[in-house]
Structures are given as C-alpha cells and as structure tokens.
Design a protein around this nucleic acid. Structure first.
Lengths: 137, 137, 137, 137
DNA sequence: GTGGTCTAGACCACT
DNA sequence: GTGGTCTAGACCACC
C-alpha cells in the first residue's frame, strides 16, 4: 500500500503499461517484496484518477506473468519470484530493446560513447547492482 | 532501387514504420547513399503487396525528417544527411529507448555489465564509429 | 474546444495544411495555451464537413512537430512549447518564404522600404514582441 | 540568349515555376531588357536537361502575363513593360506573401528583428533600389 | 510516368 | 468514447 505509482498521462506509453512496468521493476529492485499487498483495483483507480478498467487490465497482465496473485476476497499480493525464463529465452527477450536503442541512437546522430554512457547512467539510477545480486544463471 | 525492404506483417510494428526505420537506418549505415533513388510509391506498394497509401505515408514521414526529398514527377531520392533536431530534442527522443532497455534488462535479471556489453556489441555490429571503439566503462 | 477553425476549400492550400497552420499560429500567439484540448478527430471532421482521415493527418503532422500530444483514448492536447529544430534547420525552412516575398515584391514594383515596412506591420499585428518594436532599419 | 537559367531540381518548387520566376525577376532588375530574345523551347530544354513540355508551360505562363511575346517563326522576346496592376491590386497580391513569411517566422521562433533583417538582406542581394527606380505609382 | 490530397469505410488498442 | 493503421479508389499537378 505504501508503494507510490507515478503516471504521466502525456508520455505516449499507455497507462496500463506504465503500471505493469512499475510493479515489475519494483519487485525486482526490492521495493515490493514477495507477499506485499497491492492496492485494490478500485482504490488505485481512485488514487491515480484513471478508469478502473485500466487498472484491471494492468493487474491482469501482471497476473498472467506470475508477478502478482489475486486471492479472492482478500486482495492482490506480490507473488514469490520464480526464475521462469532460460538464458536463451531471456536473451531473445532483451534483443529487440537493444536493437531499438542502438538503431535509434545512431539514427539520431549520437556517438557510440554517448549511447553507452546514457544507458549506464540510467542503470545506475535504478539503484541495483550494489551487491551484484543478479547472477545470470 | 536495388534496396531490399523486408516487411513482416505479424511483427506488431506498423508497416509504414518498418519502412521508415529501414530507410533511416540504411541512410545512416551507408547502404543508401545521398542522391540514391528509392522505388516509386506504386512500385514499392506492388512489390510489398501493400496499399500505395501506406508507402506514401512512410515516404511522407521520411520527407518531414529531412531524410528523403521528393521531386515532383520524378521520384523520391535520399537527401544529404543533416542534423535537424536540437540536442535537447534528440535527448528527448532517445530517452524512452534507454528507459525501456534498462527496465527490461533489470526485470529479466541481467547484470549491469551484461546489458551495457550487449549494447556496445550491437553498436559495433552496425559498422559505424570506425577506429574509436573505446572500452565500455 | 472553443477554438474556431476556418477552412476555405477553394484556396489552393490543402485542407490538412490549413488546419496545421491555424493550430501552429494559435499556439504561438497564445490563443491556444499549453494543455488545452483540441476537438476530437471525429468531432472536427463533422464540424468542418471533411473526412476524419484529413483531420487525423493534420493532427499527425502537428504531433510530429511537437506542437500537440495525443493521449490514447483521451484526446488531443496542446503541448508545452519547445524548440525542436536546430538554428540551421530553422533558417533552411524560413528561406523560401523570404525569397518568395522578396521576388514577388520586386516584380510587383514595390520599393525596398515598402516591403520591409509592410512585413514589420504584419509582425506587430500578431501581438508578440511586446516592448521591443525597434525601428525597421 | 546570354541569360543564365539556374534550375535546382531538388528544391521543392516546380521547374516551370523556377523558370517563370527567373524571367520575371530578370526583366525587372534589367538583366533582360525589353526586346531581348529568349532561347527557343527546344534549345532551353536541351540546355537545362528538362522536358520540353516543362519549358513550354513556363513560356505559356509568361506569355499570359504579358511578360514575353512569341513571334511566330522568329522566336520568343521580352515584351515592353506595362504597369498592369493598380496599387490596390498590387497590395492584394503581395499580402499573402507577407502573411506567410510573418506566420512562418514567428512559428519557427525567430524574433521580429531577425525576420525583418533577413528580408532586408535578401532584397539587397537582388541588387535593386540603387537609383530608387521603383516609385510606387 | 511521378507523388500529393481526399474520401469512404474497416479494424484495432486504449480509456 | 478516443486516436492509429490500413485498404480501395478517385482526382490533381508535375514531368
């Protein structure tokens, strides 16, 4: 409940996706521990001033991915983390993001160093990697 | 003319955008040199089996970004490369790509080094930046 | 919403361009403030009795120039003003207008002073540049 | 015959219009005096490497405006200048050009001084106004 | 032949 | 409800 969602309605990316991403990221960075309770669909919709259907869609997606579990009548909770994907599968999933950034970067005229540097900064901002807790299987 | 377009209709990304991206990348990597002629709207529409309006929309966008120039009655040609956006605008445009990769990488459990390394490799693959492949911080 | 569009269908200039120009000018002169909502594609199409695609094309162009922002499912809004083009690009874009006016003025037999004076007046009419209307060289 | 035409095929403006403008301007600046002979349609088409139809269209337009006269079998000649338009008509004709430049200038973020200055420079470039020969009726 | 504009109408994603 | 994408087919200006 003590988790802050931040929605920027003019950012181009759909609201439900912003919520999904924030929850996914928070569970990885430890801001949302396994077992933590999330706000109800209606409560969150009210707090963020968005349509409840939008919240429901986000929770649905998170549920399908196994990141949260809804316990009927009790509420929505963060699930225990499971390493679902194989190394190959993880590489396959990250590829398009790497390609997109690389392409857009060179098209916009950035130098190799600028692109790599910007990414490194963003990663540091996310505040992980202190204890190198993410060994790659 | 001898440029190969590849459209995958089931990739989620709209057809006109696939064309835009391919041309933008090709002009940056040198596969399409300034002055080169692109296939005509109708010819490309026929070759890719899509509606001419879809091609026109792609060419339109490329034209607005200063990447191609259309000469009425003659055809479409690759323009001389120029930087049309301010530094601020370019940063604004690259940001979402950096954010998306950073988040996805973290969520998938990659380490900071792995993500940065993969990006650097992809950039080197593009064959630009000759002679200045510095270490990746 | 309360913004008046005026389309003259026999003016030579395409409908979508008339819309683009009116919105661009209105945002600069302050008639449309940042954050203001524009009429929906369908509503405006109906009001102006043109095809929705024509309105969509105008909004599309305005969006690419950073003048408006569309929020999926919510509508179209005026963006915060920002300079997206480099100085060089802005000069490149104003050049044809300068050339056209200069040529036409000379051909019509106006004197240098007359042309410059008329332009200065028109600029003052727009009501920008408060408190710095210097003499016209 | 000794008149240089300059065609830039990638400038956006149609070739026939470029020719019309150059002849109109040259007759006003004195580069083409009344009675001077212009190249034949075929000769000019060959020299500029464009379609003869394009030249014919330009000459047609100039003829309609009374700027040139074609004497059957002899060739094309610059007509004696006639002040066709009334003051009101001339103002009506220059207005759209003034408005277009003013609008585009402010939309692109130029200052009042920059716009006026650029126009003044362009007018000086045209090399008129030495003896103030263009009194306005 | 070339691209540019516009209409009509369909389907989809998002709120 | 909102905008985004795509198709089909028409007309125009330019070369």
């Amino acid at each position: 409940m003590g988790f802050d969602f931040e929605i920027s309605s003019g950012s181009g990316s759909p609201i439900f996706k912003q919520i999904v991403d924030q929850v996914r990221l928070a569970t990885v960075t430890g801001k949302l521990a396994a077992g933590a309770q999330l706000p109800s669909v209606r409560a969150l919709a009210e707090r963020l001033v968005v349509n409840p259907n939008t919240i429901a869609k986000a929770y649905n997606e998170l549920s399908r991915e196994g990141i949260i579990e809804t316990q009927q009548g009790r509420g929505v909770f963060v699930a225990k983390p499971r390493q679902i994907y194989t190394k190959t599968e993880r590489l396959r999933r990250i590829e398009p993001f790497i390609e997109a950034l690389a392409h857009e970067g060179v098209v916009l005229g950035f130098t190799r160093a600028e692109i790599v540097e910007s990414l490194a900064e963003k990663l540091d901002e996310l505040g992980l990697f202190d204890g190198q807790q993410g060994k790659t299987s």
